[in-house]
Nucleic acid binder design. Sequence first.
DNA 1: ACCGTTCTTGTCCGTATGGACAACAGCTGG
DNA 2: CCAGCTGTTGTCCATACGGACAAGAACGGT
Lengths: 225, 225
Amino acid sequence: MATRLDPAARRDQILAATLRLVARDGFARVTLRDVAAEVGVVHGLIRHYFPTREQLMAEAFDAAVLAELEGDEEVAERVEPVEALADWLTTTPRDHYFVWIDAWSEAHRNPELLAALTRHHRDCERRLARIIERLAESGRGASDDPAADAKMLTALVDGVAVQHHAIDLIGRAEADRVVYTAAEDRLGLERGTLAASRPTAARGQWAADASPVAATAGPRADRRD
Amino acid sequence: MATRLDPAARRDQILAATLRLVARDGFARVTLRDVAAEVGVVHGLIRHYFPTREQLMAEAFDAAVLAELEGDEEVAERVEPVEALADWLTTTPRDHYFVWIDAWSEAHRNPELLAALTRHHRDCERRLARIIERLAESGRGASDDPAADAKMLTALVDGVAVQHHAIDLIGRAEADRVVYTAAEDRLGLERGTLAASRPTAARGQWAADASPVAATAGPRADRRD
DNA sequence: ACCGTTCTTGTCCGTATGGACAACAGCTGG
DNA sequence: CCAGCTGTTGTCCATACGGACAAGAACGGT
């Protein structure tokens, strides 16, 4: 059925499929058979690459964390701090956030996941703090305590993302507006500065192949053994 | 085994047990047998009260929303706005938040749950906006747009709650500090005002009986049929 | 051309779940 | 005291899951 693949390629394929399904169905509901069907192989094959369901999930989430943060670092260091800030604070693609929200709800009963989440969150705060620092150095903004400002803004971004993605209470425009306004007030920027410098491109992708996370995966189909 | 109970009492008992288990294991993992074991009855009895698992979950979540918001309204109207604000912005008990976070991750595949969440969120924002309004009227604070301030602070509270409860990155003291500082800046209060007026008592309870949510439910026990 | 490696499949098993149902038991009204 | 209602139990069933394993098929080195 499925053509024989390079082991590494198949692994990545399985991890990408797992992330798609987690975004759609949640960590707890994704079964090995689901993943196999999404990839187009027999469910026994999954076990050939991942000894247990838990390990699959753990590696999939690790891959997500890794992919989300890779590369941006030096790039962000070169662009104007105001632009970098506007980019960082803009809302993330929906399917990504579904995975994060699911991870939050799963973290307190999965220590590995909690560790990965903690590392990821610290990374996010650190990068944002660095942007704020550069903003203050450039004289275009002000901050007494970049770390504290970063922590507050990170929390705000997550909270707004919940309102936007999970509850669907506000649209993307308003989500950005809420965060931008708060950031401008906090960092001594004039109102509207951030919206004006928002770059056009969206942030990174997930899967190993070029397709976005939720490319496949229509309404949950029936499965067989 | 279990003594014959008043139907309404047994219903409430089942709903309370369900919420306890959802806080511990998540919506997706709670089984009818789990609930029955938690209550101390046979799993067939659950079906006598709730025709299907989905309905049980839906009603349990409705009960949670209802219990969380009931009563406080007129009470909040009588206390000093600064004190009411400090109370409203302080972090909610942990087990409650686990249910909310789980609900967020479940909402996009459960329309009823999404509707309940939306209503709840709107209620929260409305109440906070009312407090901010009274604060401005009293002259002790200022707000150009109470609704916008309420939306931003609600998002911040949720985001901080994630950092505090889900990721366990910050403690309760720091969680309150982050929110209080942001609120004070936004509403023209002097730094420290909110921390100084935090009331002593915590917010409401859930279950029908007096016990807190996670009273029972140690580390997940083995079950039998 | 052969042969070992390993990617891949098909099938089996024990377990757990949601749901259905008949029998039992305690309460209430006549 | 009896009959009916209903809360409660125990048991059964079809399904689906994670995991295990042996057999098949493609690939690579010699």
